[in-house]
Simulated assay, not measured.
Amino acid sequence: MNSRSIGSTGVEVSEISMGCASIGNLAVAISDEQAQQVLQLAWDRGVRYFDTAPRYGSGRSEARLGQFLAGKPRDQFAVSTKVGRVLTPGPQRAEAYGFIDPLPNDVHYDYTAAGIEKSLRGSRERLGLEKIDIVLVHDIGTYMLGAEHNPAHMRDFLESGLPYLAELKAKGLVGAYGLGVNETEVCLELLQDHALDVILLAGRWTLLDRKAEAELVPLCREKGTKLVLGGVFNSGILAVGPKPGAWFDYAPASPDLLQQVAELENRFAAAETGLAHAALQFALTRPQDVVASVLLGGAELSNLKKNLDLLAKPLSNPARHLLG
């Protein structure tokens, strides 16, 4: 599998990457064995970049990924994890933030240098890594935090957390840093005045949702900031099609969205191409001077294999011309 650079940081990532929320038991609990099988399939197919976060199963995703990577040559893979949510030991719960059977940890927001330092210390222990290749600031912005709470967190980040990340990178203690978010607005806000190596952007540069194209993509190109494209199916609707109950952006799709997806599906069907295939190839064919990797997720071996196969299969010329 081809690799791509995160700017001038020296960090290399595979052009297809593995998102590890699902191995943290997102929505459905899986066994340790199944988690290892999913990761092994990705590895066998050439995936060498893995993204995780403390929030995913309150540490379970990081622990499972660390178990898998133990013994793998350190120069053959890259890992990103996230900061902004700090884990502290707490009571065992059946579910936390949509993750089933999480590890017994409480989660709280902290975007200060002290919070980031504590978060990374825990992540390194669970992952079994001395150095994290990419550190992403998780969900800062009003989309997740809300207008009421975000100003204080942003102030903590700008005054304390961001300088600390720059210091860690300058000392060679992390390879690169940036954002892991579901919105373009906070990316534009921060990129205007601050250097970021990379942004993991979920669901905002897809076949269905192109909010990133107008302003964020040109700004990333200008600043030399790479994008990792996550959420390429927009919470599932581009994988399953406009079925009743299909989800878009973490909620059931509206009738207008269902109609929009139905029109997309029909256009690609006329070019003898499935909607999921088009969605994956849309992400993979975005300009490489901006996009470093396309992030896949999922805990089902059959689905992961299918998506990897679709990524390896170029579109026909008629279908490719429909991507725009």
Rank of each mutant, 00 (worst) to 15 (best):
H149M: 10
H149D: 12
H149P: 02
H149T: 13
N150D: 14
N150L: 13
P151S: 12
P151D: 11
P151A: 11
A152I: 12
A152E: 11
H153C: 08
H153K: 13
H153N: 13
M154Q: 10
M154I: 06
D156Y: 00
D156L: 11
D156E: 15
D156A: 15
F157W: 00
F157S: 05
F157Y: 06
F157D: 00
L158M: 11
L158A: 03
L158W: 09
L158S: 03
E159Q: 15
E159G: 08
E159R: 14
E159I: 09
E159H: 12
E159Y: 10
S160V: 09
S160W: 04
G161P: 01
G161I: 00
G161M: 01
G161K: 03
L162I: 02
L162W: 05
L162C: 04
P163Q: 08
P163L: 08
P163W: 02
P163R: 07
P163Y: 04
L165R: 02
L165K: 00
L165A: 03
A166E: 13
A166R: 15
A166D: 13
A166I: 01
A166W: 01
E167N: 13
E167Y: 07
E167C: 06
L168F: 13
L168T: 01
L168V: 07
K169R: 15
K169F: 03
K169W: 07
K169S: 03
K169E: 03
A170I: 07
A170G: 06
A170E: 08
K171G: 07
K171E: 12
K171C: 03
G172F: 09
G172S: 12
L173T: 00
L173K: 14
L173G: 01
L173P: 01
L173R: 15
V174E: 04
V174G: 07
V174L: 15
V174C: 11
G175P: 00
G175M: 06
G175H: 04
A176H: 00
A176L: 03
A176G: 03
Y177S: 06
Y177D: 01
Y177I: 11
G178T: 02
G178E: 05
G178C: 06
L179P: 00
G180C: 14
G180K: 03
